[in-house]
Amino acid sequence: MNSRVDNLLVNANYLWRLLATGVSFVFFGLGGVVASVLLFSFLYLLPISLYKKRICAQYLVSLLFRSFIGFMNLCGLLTYEINGRELLKEKGQLVIANHPTLLDVVFLISLVPRANCIVKEELWRNPLVLGPVSAVGYIKNNSKQLLAQCSESLNRQDSLIIFPAGTRDHGERSFVFLRGAANVALFAGRDITPVVIRCEPQTLSKGGKWYKIPKTPPHFVINILPDIEVRPFLESGNLQSKMSRELTAYLEGFYEKNIGF
């Protein structure tokens, strides 16, 4: 009898979360549109410099994402813990993270008030996110001056978030990183703040469908770790192509160790 009631409750919880997950997705999409119409267009009209508009937009996106995570948490869709938050307090940090789920960037931007990202060019044609994307002035991933733009952004005191794994981890038990993050660090001469994201059970991973939610709500553990220095790599005297490969290999090893593979 008891187990039947338990079962019923588990199923009810599952259905509730399925519904709430759908609602969250709709919220996220609508949120972008509503924010574009109300907030970002208003911001655009304000008589302040483009520089200030961008900063306002960054704070706004961070606030919206924080609210979104809070909403999902309140609905019982996810739980989370964040360790080492104080390590993200500097301005102009180069932040990298592994990329197990769709929500990683939402978490990270919610933690970094002045975040910049490298974003797919398609997003400039997506009406759901065009408002915030153009207001913040994210960097387009196909830009010819990508490195220079990243470096400039860091010099403007933006914190730049890069996922070196690309568009999400591949789910295999090892990391293959692209060299972009290392190239930015070497080009801009910035140390790297590594963020290790774990999500159990796995959800919203690459290729997964939004309605395939796990039996229990996912728990996110987000660990912000002390900076990785780029100086030893820069001082090696190697060509940039070599330094970049060495730093990337180091980062892969760092994540493998810290995820506990």
């Binding site: 060299r179 190239n183 940039q240 192509s241 070599k242 970049s244």
Partner: peptide, 11 residues
Amino acid sequence: IDSIDAVDLIV
């Protein structure tokens, strides 16, 4: 081999 590598190769 990306554009950064190409610069080194040309060197």
